[in-house]
Amino acid sequence: MIYAVNKTEYEDLVSVWESSVKSTHHFLAKEDFEFYKKLIPSFFENLILHCVKNEKEQIVGFMGTDKDNLEMLFVHESEIGKGFGKKLLVYAIDNLNIKKVDVNKDNPQAIDFYTRFGFETKSVSDVDGFGKPYPILHLVLKSN
Rank of each mutant, 00 (worst) to 15 (best):
I2K: 04
A4I: 06
A4Y: 08
N6A: 08
N6D: 13
K7H: 11
K7V: 13
T8F: 12
T8P: 02
Y10M: 05
E11G: 01
L13T: 05
S15H: 07
S15W: 01
E18F: 02
E18H: 08
E18G: 08
S20T: 00
K22R: 09
K22G: 06
S23M: 01
S23E: 02
H26M: 00
L28N: 05
E31N: 07
E31Y: 02
D32R: 02
F33C: 04
F33Q: 04
E34W: 01
Y36W: 06
Y36F: 14
I40M: 07
P41L: 04
S42G: 01
F43R: 00
F43G: 01
F43Q: 02
F44S: 06
N46L: 03
L47I: 11
I48G: 11
L49D: 07
L49N: 03
L49P: 02
H50W: 13
H50Y: 15
C51K: 08
V52T: 12
V52K: 01
K53S: 06
K53P: 05
K56W: 05
K56D: 15
E57G: 03
Q58S: 09
I59N: 00
F62L: 14
M63S: 10
G64I: 03
G64M: 00
K67W: 09
K67D: 13
K67A: 12
D68W: 06
N69A: 11
N69T: 07
N69S: 13
E71M: 10
E71Q: 08
L73A: 13
F74N: 02
V75T: 10
V75D: 08
V75M: 07
E77P: 02
S78L: 04
E79V: 01
E79A: 10
K82N: 12
K82F: 11
G83A: 11
G83C: 10
F84A: 09
K86Y: 12
K86S: 15
K87I: 01
Y91F: 15
A92N: 09
D94K: 14
N95E: 15
N95K: 14
N95I: 10
I98C: 14
I98R: 12
I98S: 12
I98K: 12
K99H: 08
K99I: 07
K100E: 14
K100Y: 14
D102Q: 13
V103G: 02
N104H: 04
K105I: 06
K105F: 15
D106Q: 04
P108F: 01
Q109E: 13
Q109I: 15
A110F: 10
A110H: 10
A110V: 08
D112E: 15
F113R: 06
F113M: 12
F113Q: 05
Y114S: 07
Y114Q: 09
R116D: 15
F117V: 10
G118W: 12
T121L: 12
T121A: 15
K122C: 05
K122I: 15
S125G: 00
D126I: 04
D128M: 03
G129M: 00
K132H: 03
P133Y: 02
Y134S: 04
Y134W: 07
P135V: 04
I136K: 07
L137M: 05
L137Y: 15
L137E: 03
L137D: 05
H138F: 03
L139I: 01
L139M: 15
S143W: 01
